[in-house]
């Protein structure tokens, strides 16, 4: 008999504050496992961003810094430019990255910063109570779009991966999903590729992880996985949008 799956040492013993069924926990685990497997836990500095994931520094077994809303890519830039030998990543939600932090994420990609961005897209502001995000789908109800998002009033949801893949100095951009074990295996490979990209000094790497927010969506955890698959993936297609050669 042999243990084929156990908790990675990249995660601390602290239980997360996330709601039951929230896929943030999966995203944390993937980052932690990849850093452990690459032997980088002791060499990594993470940037936590505002939103549910602000407390990620309590759960990830690496040095971390808390960033103001949207600013994580700028903070990561300052860190990476000071200690380029360290692995530096940001962990950002869609309210953070796709709304208040659009300037910082675009320009981190624009400079080709050699950092890794873990972008958790659950199409809503979770921590503040389920408000509309730039990623909220057309018709999706939120506390600030009580009748559902009206594209003619609020525009169509932003596709950040597609946008960032167009930035000339971006190196690696992939969108994956956390709604099913098969997809979670692929997501881990993407996270691994992103950090490998940084280790190989290839520049800006970003993985967008489609995630659920059962509480914000008003669905139970299992229905949330189904909702993600039925609604998010058609609008946010999975795949590699930008890759350096041989990654």
């Amino acid at each position: 008999m042999s243990v084929i799956f156990s908790k990675t040492s990249g995660l601390t013993e602290t239980a997360t504050h996330y709601c039951p069924g929230c896929t943030h926990g999966i995203a944390h685990r993937l980052v932690a496992e990849v850093l452990e497997e690459l032997g980088l836990l002791g060499e990594t500095i993470g940037c936590a961003s505002v939103g549910c994931s602000i407390l990620s520094y309590n759960y990830l077994n690496v040095d971390m810094i808390e960033c103001s809303h949207g600013r994580a890519p700028a903070v990561a830039t300052g860190i990476k430019r000071t200690v380029p030998e360290k692995t530096v990543f940001t962990y950002q939600g869609d309210g953070d990255l796709a709304s208040i932090g659009t300037a910082e994420i675009v320009h981190a990609a624009h400079r080709g910063e050699n950092i890794t961005v873990i972008f958790v897209n659950n199409a809503i502001y979770g921590m503040t109570g389920g408000q509309m995000a730039p990623t909220t789908l057309a018709g999706q109800k939120t506390t600030t779009a009580p009748e559902g998002r009206q594209p003619e009033f609020s525009g169509l949801p932003l596709k950040m991966s597609e946008m960032l893949a167009q930035v000339p100095s971006a190196s690696y951009v992939e969108r994956v999903s956390l709604h099913h074990p098969k997809y979670i295996r692929k997501a881990k490979k993407a996270v691994l590729r992103a950090f490998t990209c940084q280790m190989e000094h290839r520049g800006f790497s970003l993985v967008e992880l489609l995630s659920t927010c059962p509480t914000g969506w008003g669905l139970d955890p299992i229905d949330s996985l189904e909702w993600l698959e039925a609604n998010m993936i058609p609008y946010y297609p999975l795949g590699v949008f930008r890759a350096p050669e041989e990654v």
Binding site: I45, C47, I65, C67, S68, R71, A74, V75, A76, T77, G78, I79, K80, R81, T82, V83, K86, E104
Partner: peptide, 9 residues
């Protein structure tokens, strides 16, 4: 914010 990151490192 870059200042913040750099000085923190």
């Amino acid at each position: 914010n870059m200042l913040y990151g750099a000085a923190a490192a």
